[in-house]
Design a binder for these strands. Structure first.
Lengths: 329, 329
DNA sequence: AAGGTTCGAGGGAGCGCTCCCTGAGAAGGA
DNA sequence: TCCTTCTCAGGGAGCGCTCCCTCGAACCTT
């Protein structure tokens, strides 16, 4: 029950606390004989350094907060992005010797808790995941002055890694037009998210440039909202022949609505999504979508944070977009 | 940059460190006048207690490790259970004032890291999620003597909350037989997981009892493995007319294989899954499945852990199974 | 051979907080 | 009125570790 202390190890090994500390921390200025006897004592006692004591003394924690915005209501159980990003980020951070503290920032309450936690000096850095643009948290945290990065752009003060959202939307819409589609609608994400805004502007830019009329419905990145938006689009413009959904989940919802409405995909209406989540491969018909590599994305964001620890500049990173053509368009 | 200390607050308020400490920690034996002046100083200085120092002094951390087993290869991006459980558990724990440290236990390496982390006294308790039965980690951690619970049964020494797996399988298989299905196959999960074993035995028990032959293929809970297993089953017994898959992901894989093989579902072959993930509602045909309420499950597990903190006994909890009949069977 | 270097071990002062203990003053009892 | 009891603020010793500083010993250098 009683954990052995540094001092106990020192006593057992017959050396000073300082020497034990040096061995533990891998200092090179230790005689091999001492190193040996210390390591043996450590093993025999099952000594593990006390984290809190070490943090207190060094004023560092070796931990990083992974702050994930809680999803909108209704999107609770099945969020592929969450799973992929959190997993990959955890892996990378752990591999870099950082402990990962996962925090959800949903309610005002939890938001305050995150700020409090960071202020308490629990972590050396923060990685935000897909916060809404309007969120106050990024700004609050950035003001603290400790390293912080964001997966997806949020606050100007926060270094980020992002998809080429406008580029991806551009690819998707041009692909549809190239196929001879004339009435191309879009289903947007929540408009307080920068990713949504960018994907929308990518769409409208192409439409304007090519002299087509924009047809827009607003969703919130959930499957249900996609289905609803699609219903509305069909009502607004029964003759539409293509839809660009700002993410795959909504595209999947749209597919369902189209099937229920008796429209064939892609014959009557073509559908393109965004994200290329795994489920996109398993819909009928399989979803054509803009590939945004979650895993690479998480990796790049972690690297950005680790770079900041090393005194890096935190230059934003933009991941290239790529269209994956399957059956739906 | 320099965080204010307790002492700074005390100086500003013109009282002793002890008094400030009492106010911060809500001790009742403080005169209102002192409380007031202290709170003002805290506000003015923006004081936040230093976590490490507090942990050192109290020998408690107010943090809980959430240890999630890394999924088998191939199941990286899209794991609905992970998402739902982690989210709900985080919410509940944070609501109880516990910090959540998420850790993935995949490789031997990461497993050692978890053990090390816990040994370092970083956390007051541990919550395991869906560890494999053969895993050494639960036993290792349990030996440490600090509160630990498991979502899903693993090691006998670890209090757990689990689905009624045999009961669920029983419901599913009897449902199929009641429909007049005669050749009911099953696709199992990885057999080193207790959940897999129980769902399998639930199946075999009913089959034996009712005088039917078991037809078994082994999967690993991934979509792909479900598709593969289904292919093999069709080869083994082309005349089969029903399949019970040990989880929904595999059931979805099986649906795909069946479609490719030209079998109609449910007309030619009925399919039942297990878990009732959100995606089960959106397959064609919609999946009949055993509902296991991830959210309740996570909640119950957290409650079990919080109970242990309060000196509870850690009596295991079993959640009732329920069949959700949709279109696939 | 004597002084100058270098190298590496030990000593000890914190890091910021909690909590036990002391003691002053107020309150109550005889 | 004096003494006991109670209440509550302050003092200070840790919690376990790091890291700077000192100092002895070994090794060079001239």
């Amino acid at each position: 029950m009683d954990r052995p202390t540094l001092e106990a190890v020192a006593a057992r090994a017959g050396v000073s606390k300082s020497s034990v500390s040096r061995v533990i921390n891998g200092a090179t200025t230790v005689a091999p004989s001492i190193r040996e006897v210390v390591l043996r004592a450590v093993r025999e006692l099952g000594y593990v350094p006390h984290a809190a004591a070490r943090n207190l003394a060094t004023r560092r924690t070796n931990a990083v907060a992974l702050v994930v915005s809680d999803p909108p209501k209704g999107l609770v159980s099945d969020d592929p992005m969450f799973s992929a990003v959190v997993r990959q980020a955890s892996r990378k951070l752990e591999a870099a010797g950082k402990q990962v503290v996962l925090m959800l920032a949903g309610s005002e309450d939890s938001r305050a808790r995150v700020a409090q936690y960071v202020a308490a000096g629990h972590v050396d850095g923060v990685m935000l995941v897909s916060m809404h643009g309007a969120d106050s948290l990024p700004a609050t945290l950035a003001r603290r002055g400790l390293p912080i990065v964001s997966l997806g752009r949020t606050n100007p003060a926060v270094p980020y890694v992002d998809n080429d959202n406008p580029g991806g939307a551009d690819l998707a819409v041009r692909h549809l037009l190239r196929q001879g589609r004339r009435r191309v609608a879009t289903i947007t994400g929540p408009l307080d998210m920068i990713a949504s805004q960018e994907r929308l502007s990518g769409y409208t830019d192409v439409m304007r440039e090519t002299g087509h009329r924009s047809i827009v419905a607003i969703g919130d990145f959930t499957r249900v909202s996609g289905a609803d938006a699609m219903r509305q689009l069909l009502q607004d413009d029964p003759a539409l022949d293509a839809v660009f959904a700002a993410n795959d989940l909504m595209a999947i919802g749209a597919l369902r609505t189209l099937r229920e409405a008796g429209r064939r995909v892609p014959d009557d209406v073509a559908v393109v999504g965004f994200d290329d989540i795994e489920a996109a491969r398993y819909t009928t018909p399989a979803l054509t979508t803009v590939h945004s590599p979650m895993t690479d994305w998480a990796t790049a964001t972690v690297d950005l944070l680790l770079g900041l620890f090393e005194g890096g500049s935190g230059e934003p990173v933009l991941l290239p977009a790529e269209l994956v053509v399957r059956e739906s368009a």
